[in-house]
Every structure is written in C-alpha cells, then in structure tokens.
Design a protein around this nucleic acid. Sequence first.
DNA 1: CCACCGATTGACTGGTCAATCAACCGCAGG
DNA 2: CCTGCGGTTGATTGACCAGTCAATCGGTGG
Lengths: 199, 199
Amino acid sequence: MAQAPPADKRRLILDAAIRVFARQGFHATRVSDIADDAGVAYGLVYHYFRSKDEVLNELFVERWSLLLVAIEEADRTGAGPREKLGAVAGFIFDSYRHDPELMKVIIVEVTRAANSFGQTHLEEIRRAYEGIAKIVADGQARGALRADVEPMFASMAFYGAVEQLLSGWIFETIPASETDFDQARDLLVTTICDGLEPR
Amino acid sequence: MAQAPPADKRRLILDAAIRVFARQGFHATRVSDIADDAGVAYGLVYHYFRSKDEVLNELFVERWSLLLVAIEEADRTGAGPREKLGAVAGFIFDSYRHDPELMKVIIVEVTRAANSFGQTHLEEIRRAYEGIAKIVADGQARGALRADVEPMFASMAFYGAVEQLLSGWIFETIPASETDFDQARDLLVTTICDGLEPR
DNA sequence: CCACCGATTGACTGGTCAATCAACCGCAGG
DNA sequence: CCTGCGGTTGATTGACCAGTCAATCGGTGG
C-alpha cells in the first residue's frame, strides 16, 4: 500500500453528519456540531465540502444511486412482478436495517422534505418511481398484473407504502423491534399484489 | 348582522401564511413575508400568535381535526371497509382539491416533516393512523378483509399511498390536471382492496 | 536542511430574522 | 372633552450561525 490511510477525515465528517443529522435534523444542526462529532476542526468541513448542504447532498446521492441500481437489477431478473417488487422493498428495508440513521436522514431530510431540500433531487427521486413503474408496466404486459391501473399510479402507491412503513419505524409509530423486516417485506408485497380482501 | 366584520386580521394572517408557506416553505418564510402578504404590520402577527411556529400549528390543527372527524364518521357508517376507506381517501383528496395550498403546507411542513416540526404533532398524526386501523380491524372482524395483515400495518400502507399520491400532485411528479380526483380515489381503493394482480 | 504544498485549525465577520416594545390610533363610555 | 383600552404599527434588539481566511502543521522531495 502506498501510504496508510490517514484516518480519512472526509469520511469521518460524513459519518458524523449522519449521526448528527439523524439526532437533531438538518436544520437544527450547526456545522460546528458535525465538526465536533467528527473530532475535527470547524474549517475542515469547508475544505472537503462547499457547504452544509453539500454534505447532505453527498449522503443522499451515495445511497440513492444504490437504490436506483437495485431497482434496475430487480427489473433485469426475469422474475414475476411480485418477486421484483419484493426485491425492491427488501433492498430498502435492508438499507434501514443496516444503517437506520442514514436512512432516517435520507427519508426525513431529503425524500420527504421535497420542498426545501429534496427540490434539488426531485429528478433522481422521480427516477426511482419510474423504475418501479417500469416493473409494473412489464408485469401488465405479461398479464401478471391487471391492466386497468396506471403504472406510475401503482408505483407511487407502492413506494408510498414502503416509505410510510419506514417512517413508522423511524418515529416508533410502529414497533420496529418485534417486526421482522423480511416478514414486513412479504406482507407488503402480499398486500399490494393480492389486496386486502380475501381471495 | 351585528356589525360588519372588521376584516378579521387574524384570519387574514392565517390565509396569508398558507400562501407564503406554500410558496416558499416554512423555513424560508420570514415573519415579515407573512405580514406583508396579509397587508398588516409586522408586530400584529405577534399580537395574535406567540410565534411563527404557532401560526403553522394553528393551520395544521384546524385542518387535521377535520380529518380525524371524517375518519371517525366514515367508521360510524355501517358500510363495508371498502366504502369507508374510499370515504377517507375521498375526504383527503377533496381537501386538496378545495385548498391545494393548505394541503401542501400540512403535508410538506408538518406530516412529512415529522422530525423538525411534526414531532409536536406525532400524537395527532398517529390518531389518524389508528382511526384507519380501526376500520381495517372492523372489516377483518366481519370477514370482509383478510385477517393475516396487522391492521396498523395496513393502515400505514394505505395512508402512505394516499400521501404519496398527494405529494405527486403537489410536486407535479404526477399530472394533477388530467387526473380526476374521484377516479384516483376509486383506483386507490381498488388497488388496496383488490390488489394489483388480476382477480 | 530548506522550500514547498496540501491538510488542518479556529477566531472572526457579516447578514439574517425572530421576537420585543414603546408609541400611536380611534372608539366607547363617562 | 377627557380617559382608557384593545388593536395596530414598525423600528430596534439580540442571538445565532454559515461561511471566510490567515495562520500553523507535518510530510516530501531536492
């Protein structure tokens, strides 16, 4: 190795930002909070990032691009729409299981804050909706899904349900401890595909 | 009439706040923006409200209490769960049709901003979820809905879908003009109750 | 041993607003 | 005509904080 990684300060700052944003929310965190939590001088944040916004930006883009890939990959498998949707929901729920603080920040501060901050990312967010809509449209073309529902409509309903469940866990409206995430994924897919009424 | 209403300044301020919050977002609006838009002196805002937060508070509580009543009423009708859920979704969509700016503010600044501002209102928001869950539970008890889905789970999925559609209209991710709201309501209920797969 | 350069530090500035407050207006009742 | 009072005004204050910048550190190559 060329040189021992000198405790990558940039990463240190990003990780600290996740913790602090998750704890206090973006607006309530001062840049000094991030620097303190990272054990780094105030000014260094501005050495690596142009602004406080850019820190959040980076966190969002890093993670969201993975989601877009996951959706794309799910679609590429030749499986049925039920399996594809399960894969998408599974990826999102796993992201939460793996790093709840990061997901909290992304959902609360970007995705659902579509007015203030998310405005910048509407395009990327929309791309996710469209990816899901593509899965639905494909399922309809194959006759596996009913054709009388607009794909984008179904996509929004599906993604909305996913995000709402996430929010429920994040804000403890719904108990996260006892709920098994895989079970939640299956239940959600069942609900959306089979419906609430008995078959 | 006793006396000509002396242009109720308090109301004037609230209505102005709706417009300005909807346009700029809560954080980006200065109190002076509200006062200017209402054609009223800066200080008067503080005569009627303790703080900028309280203005938003008032807007939220005013409208949300109506939703809680609507859910309660929908539940009291002896109709099936499908009709009850349709009534709830219909009420929310109608609220948007009637006053899109107010709904935008409530959704964007309170409901989805559960971290910063909505924290205060988590209790009231939760009450809505629970009202919907009660409808589901009742439907299950009557055998009209499958019993293997946790009512609170179904409620979150349903409400999440509703809110996501609203967000889609608000941010024009989904065209609102061509979409008939009543049709959207029926389609949503169909999706949730019957599922995406063909029966 | 020096010159150089990017990383790192943290005190400081400039601007922004929420909230306060002292004064003003106009009417009701004496 | 005065007095009091609630509604109304808008200039002022005081806190807060993002972003700047000049100084320092520490390593590398000549």
